[in-house]
Design a protein around this nucleic acid. Structure first.
Lengths: 224, 224
DNA sequence: TTCCTCAATCTTGTATGGTAGATGCCTGAC
DNA sequence: GTCAGGCATCTACCATACAAGATTGAGGAA
C-alpha cells in the first residue's frame, strides 16, 4: 500500500497536493465528487491544516472548487475552458515553432529526431504511459529550443484540464498519427520552413478538436 | 485610514490577498523585503492562519517566495520572467487580433473607436490611473471580441510582474504613442487586414522592450 | 398530502499553541 | 585577533479547538 508519505516533498501540504492532483487528473476522483478537508485528512493521516492548504493550491489551479462554508468539489470540466486552454496552447506553441524554424540551432534536428525515435519504440512496445511522457517532452523540448521553457510551465498548468479529457478517451489509439505529425513538424523545422512548421503544428494541435464533443456525449456528468 | 476590513471579500484571507497584492504591485512592499506571518497578522489585526493562506496564494502567483522555516520575502523581479511573460502575452494577443481582424463583428470598429476616444479624454485630463485602466480595457476588449476573454485572465495573472516594472517607469509619458498605436490596430481590424493588424500589435507590445534594461540599471536591487 | 419551521449536523473559516528547522549572535578557547 | 561551538530567537509548519454559515431531514400544522 502506497502512502502519501512516500511522495518526497518538503512539506505535508505539498505531498497532499501531489497525491490529490494525480487522483483528479487520472479521474480516480471524478468531476462533481464532493470531498471535505476532514475526509482527506483522515485518509492521509494528517490534520486538516495541510489538507486545507492543498485545497487552496488546487483550487487556484482550477481543479477544485471551494464553496465557503458549504463544501469542496472536484471541478467539473468546462468545455469552454478546454476550448480556451487549447487556444492558449496553440497561440504559444505556434509562436514557438515559428521561432525554432526561423532560427534552428545546430543540433535541433538531431534532438527532435532522437525523441521521435524514442516515441516509435514506446509505441511498438505499447507503453502508452511512456509514449505520453515522450509526447509531452517533444513539445517541451520545442519550447526549450525557442528559449522559452518557462512558458511551457504555463501550458503545463492548463494542460491538466486537457489531460482529464484525454484520460477519458484512452483506447482511441492515435499514436501512429501523432508520430507522423511530429515527423512533419521536425522536417519543416529542419528545412527552416517557418510557414510550413506553423501549419503543421496547427494541424497537430487541431486534431483533438473532434474528440471533445464526442467525450461530452459519452460522459455528460463530468462537464458543466 | 483605510483598513483591510474595507475590502469587500468573502473571507479575511482573500482580503489580505488583495491588500498585499496592491502593496506589492504598487511597490509599497519592495522586492527583497522580508515579511512574516506574524507581522502581517498584527498589521491587519487577524490571526496568522488567514495570512498564511494569503501567502500561499500570492506565492503561487509569483509575488512571494516562501522559504520554509526561514522567512517569506517579496519576490525579486526576474528579467527572464518578464521577458517570457511578454512572450506569452505577445503570443496570445497576436492570435487575438488575427481572429478579430479575420472575422470582425459588426460593431467591433465602433466599440474600439469609443474606447480610444475615452483614452484621449483621460490623456488630456492627465488622469494616468484611468488611462491605464482604459489601456487594459482595450486589450481585454480585443480578447472578448475574439471570444477568448478567459484567456485574458491568464495574461492578467502574468501582467502583475510587468506592472511592477511599469510602476517604476512612471513619468515616462508615452500615452500619445500608445493611443496612436491603438488607432492603427483598430484601423487594420476595421479593414480586415490580418497581417497588418498582427504587425501593428507586435509593434505596440514590442515598444516596452527598451524600458526593461533601463529599469534594471535604475533599480538593480529589485531584480534577480 | 403539502409545506413550513427548526434543530442536528454537516461544511469551511479563524484563532492559538506547540514543534522543528534555520539563522545569527555571543561567548570562550586558542 | 580569529575561529568554532552552542544557545537564544527567529521562521514557517502542523495540530487542535472553536466559531459560524449552509444543508438536510424530521416533525408538526394547515
Amino acid at each position: 500500500m502506497t502512502s502519501v508519505l512516500d511522495i518526497p516533498e518538503e512539506t505535508m501540504s505539498l505531498r497532499v497536493v501531489g497525491a490529490l492532483r494525480d487522483e483528479i487528473v487520472s479521474m480516480a476522483l471524478k468531476p462533481g465528487d464532493v470531498i471535505s478537508e476532514s475526509d482527506i485528512a483522515a485518509r492521509y493521516g494528517v490534520s486538516r491544516q495541510p489538507v486545507r492548504e492543498a485545497f487552496i493550491r488546487l483550487a487556484q489551479q482550477g481543479l477544485l472548487l471551494i464553496r465557503p462554508k458549504r463544501a469542496t468539489v472536484v471541478k467539473k470540466i468546462s468545455p469552454e475552458g478546454v476550448r480556451q486552454s487549447r487556444f492558449i496552447r496553440e497561440s504559444i506553441e505556434v509562436e514557438v515553432v515559428r521561432r525554432v524554424a526561423g532560427n534552428p540551432g545546430a543540433d535541433a534536428a538531431a534532438i527532435l529526431d532522437e525523441l521521435i525515435a524514442d516515441q516509435e519504440r514506446a509505441s511498438s512496445a505499447a507503453d502508452s504511459r511512456r509514449f505520453h511522457q515522450l509526447d509531452e517532452l517533444f513539445h517541451r523540448t520545442l519550447a526549450r529550443l525557442a528559449g522559452v521553457e518557462y512558458a511551457w510551465q504555463l501550458i503545463d498548468d492548463h494542460k491538466m484540464q486537457l489531460d482529464r479529457v484525454r484520460f477519458m478517451t484512452l483506447g482511441v489509439s492515435s499514436a501512429q498519427v501523432a508520430i507522423g505529425e511530429h515527423k512533419i513538424i521536425a522536417a519543416k523545422i529542419a528545412n527552416g520552413d517557418v510557414a510550413g512548421a506553423e501549419a503543421a503544428m496547427r494541424a497537430h494541435l487541431g486534431r483533438a478538436e473532434i474528440l471533445l464533443t464526442q467525450t461530452i456525449n459519452d460522459f455528460p456528468d463530468y462537464f458543466e
